[in-house]
Amino acid sequence: MTDDTRIPRPALLLGLAGLIPFLWSAATHLSPALSGMAGQWLSPMFLGAYVGLSYGTVILAFMSGVLWGFATRAEGREATLAYTLSVIPALWAFFMVTDASDTSAIFLAAGFVGLLLLDATFQAWGLAPRWWLRLRVMLTVVVLACLAIPLQA
């Protein structure tokens, strides 16, 4: 693997650390005992599906900012399109994730799938680093799995 396709260690470690709230969401949903124990110290917003929905909404907005940063590398019409596309994940989360329902969870998961398509687009345009899509696919698979767990009723 060439040096420009290798995921930089800080990006990998921070990306993996960013999965912790999603994994915590899944764990506290799957384990009533863990949720009950943690619930003695944590607000309900930090347990079960709710934490995955709220954190996922924050992450979609964050990723809009990342894409905006990539858009700064474009020029002309491509820049206009890149800036426009970069705001879609944040707007999607704002308008589509409105409560703690299964519908919002499905819309949030769809937002992450759409984000991955945008990541691929920005990489294809040469705006994202060559390693970007490898990192984003890995992280997105885990996020989608965690968001799906509460839907398995």
Rank of each mutant, 00 (worst) to 15 (best):
E75L: 11
G76A: 14
S86D: 03
I106C: 04
G69K: 00
S104T: 01
T98L: 14
V87P: 04
A61H: 04
R77C: 08
T72D: 09
A61G: 13
A71L: 03
E75P: 05
D102L: 10
I59H: 00
L67N: 06
I59K: 00
F62K: 05
F95V: 11
G69S: 04
A105N: 05
S64G: 11
T103K: 10
S104E: 12
T80R: 14
F107L: 14
T98Q: 15
L60P: 01
A61W: 03
A82K: 00
F107Y: 08
A90G: 13
E75M: 04
A71Y: 00
G76C: 12
M96G: 09
T72K: 11
V66L: 11
L91A: 10
A100F: 05
A90Y: 00
E75W: 08
S86N: 02
A74N: 13
F107P: 03
F95I: 13
T103S: 12
I106M: 11
E78A: 14
A71K: 01
A105S: 13
D99F: 05
R77F: 12
A105M: 10
W92Q: 07
A105V: 06
A79M: 11
A82N: 05
A93F: 06
T72R: 10
W92A: 08
V87L: 10
M63D: 00
F94W: 13
F95A: 13
A105R: 06
A79Y: 04
M63R: 05
A90M: 06
A74Q: 09
A79Q: 15
W68E: 04
T80P: 11
F70Y: 10
D99S: 12
A93M: 10
T98W: 08
S101M: 02
G65R: 01
T103C: 06
V66Y: 01
S64V: 00
S64C: 10
D102V: 13
A100I: 05
S101G: 12
M96E: 06
A82M: 07
F94I: 12
V87E: 04
Y83C: 13
G65C: 08
T72Y: 07
F107S: 07
A93V: 07
W68L: 15
G65P: 02
R77P: 06
S64L: 02
F107Q: 07
S104K: 02
A71D: 02
M63S: 04
M96D: 09
A100Y: 07
T72E: 12
R73N: 10
